[in-house]
């Protein structure tokens, strides 16, 4: 299984992390699940970080934004397939906070490390199992070049 993302959307989410540095950026990945359980990203929707009390090390997407994005995605025949955020001056690995606050089982959580304002590493993690047993697994992030 893999998360497939067109290069222009991959660049877009990395640039979002650079633009909000030293704060965390966040957004929603809209696309399709394929029959093998993999996903193809069709759009990366930029969101505001509502954790204004701790922008450098926390992110939160307004549920009202999620409602709108989910509805628009479903109208287009797509779904929310994942989320992205940045780790300013911190590795592109999930944190205990990332896991504690992750509730979309089956979705991809894409994290970009941004060091001194430049996006460095982007990794994807797949959230598995139900709330009481949830865990992340490394997920292949396949950037599609045209």
């Amino acid at each position: 299984m893999a998360l497939k993302i067109p290069v222009e959307l991959y660049d877009q989410l990395r640039q979002h992390g650079e633009a909000t540095y030293p704060h965390e950026c966040c957004g929603v990945l809209v696309g399709e699940f394929d029959e093998s359980g993999g996903k193809v990203v069709k759009a990366a929707v930029t969101c505001g970080n509502t954790r204004t009390d701790s922008l450098a090390n926390r992110y939160h997407i307004s549920p009202s934004e999620l409602v709108r994005i989910q509805r628009d995605a479903m109208l287009a025949g797509h779904d929310i397939v994942g989320f992205y955020h940045s780790h300013p001056d911190h590795p592109a690995r999930w944190s205990t906070t990332d896991l504690a606050e992750a509730h979309w089982t089956g979705s991809s959580y894409v994290i970009t490390s941004v060091e001194n304002g430049r996006a460095v590493v982007t990794n994807s993690f797949l959230l598995l199992d139900h709330e009481e047993a949830k865990h992340f697994e490394d997920e292949l992030l396949e950037v599609i070049e045209h």
């Binding site: 939160h60 999620l66 955020h85 944190s95 606050e101």
Partner: peptide
Amino acid sequence: DIRYLNKDATPVKETDTVTIVPSVAGGR
């Protein structure tokens, strides 16, 4: 958000849509 309406008691009408969304948050 029903928390800012009348919560569970919020009346609905035929054209309404109820949407469930788990929260999305985290951070390093």
